[in-house]
Amino acid sequence: MTTDKPIIDEICRLLAPHNPKGIALSAATDIPKELNIDSVGVLDFIMEVEDTFDIEIPMNVVAETHTIGDLVKVVEARIRKA
């Protein structure tokens, strides 16, 4: 499934279940650190991002992706590649 919504909005929507404390999300938010998501949780979340945008984000790339802004750039690049 792809979406016309801005990528950052979609990512924030997908992060909502991982953000029970309702921390304000922005491009600068460090996903694992600020939302306290463990390594497996991050990988599970990335699978949801992959399926939402119908792209592939290899685990090797996830290791270098920390903030929401980093992830937006990865998604943009992967959509262009697809």
């Binding site: 990988l43 699978m47 592939e56 290899p58 685990m59 090797n60």
Partner: peptide, 11 residues
């Protein structure tokens, strides 16, 4: 083992 391989990893 996957990490050591240097391969692209898809879960």
């Amino acid at each position: 083992g996957c990490t050591l391989s240097g391969a692209k990893l898809v879960r």
